[in-house]
């Protein structure tokens, strides 16, 4: 069963890999069937809850889609991705809410400070993470990551590495 220090280590590691652009190592944290989900908001207080019938900011089933996002961000063909904004994640309030031998649910809070050097503009994003983890071949993989973005009026752009 996962301990809180182990869960914290995984979450902090993901944050560092995103902040430093270590894309392949970041992708390697994800299960091939992983779900990556950022709900939109239905009203002032309620995020969308069913990605099949309601709009999400991002919804992917399968790591393959995250690989597409990495490809686009690193292609040199996207003006919004070049030069890449500088980001730092702060991950806090980590709680292991469910722990089994080979599965776990982990909650956390996040802040991301983003500096877009091209626009000379700083932005702050904050919210909550909800992870489903799966133990496989001696390590923990991310089977699902749900990101509740609290400040969802998005300044121009928000990509996977700045949330």
């Amino acid at each position: 069963m996962i301990t809180r220090p182990e869960a914290e280590d995984l979450l902090y590691r993901e944050a560092l890999l995103l902040d430093t652009g270590a894309w392949q190592e970041w992708l390697d944290l994800y299960d091939p069937d992983a779900e990556f989900w950022i709900p939109a908001w239905k009203d002032e207080t309620t995020p969308t809850s069913d990605p099949a019938s309601e709009l999400s900011l991002v919804y992917y089933k399968g790591r393959r889609n995250l690989e597409d996002r990495v490809k686009r961000a690193t292609s040199g063909l996207s003006v919004a991705s070049t030069p890449r904004a500088r980001c730092v994640h702060g991950v806090t309030n980590v709680i292991v809410s469910e722990a089994q031998d080979s599965a776990a649910q982990v909650f956390a809070s996040f802040t991301v400070h983003r500096y877009d050097a091209r626009a000379e503009r700083s932005d702050l994003f904050y919210g909550r993470y909800e992870y489903q983890l799966r133990h496989d071949s001696g390590r923990w993989l991310i089977a699902a990551k749900k990101v509740i973005l609290l400040n969802d009026v998005i300044p121009t752009v928000l990509d996977f590495y700045s949330i």
């Binding site: 908001w41 239905k42 969308t48 019938s53 309601e54 709009l55 999400s56 009026v153 998005i154 300044p155």
Partner: peptide, 9 residues
């Protein structure tokens, strides 16, 4: 469809 997305530029 439920879910509004707002952005600024």
């Amino acid at each position: 469809v439920p879910g509004r997305v707002t952005f600024t530029y």
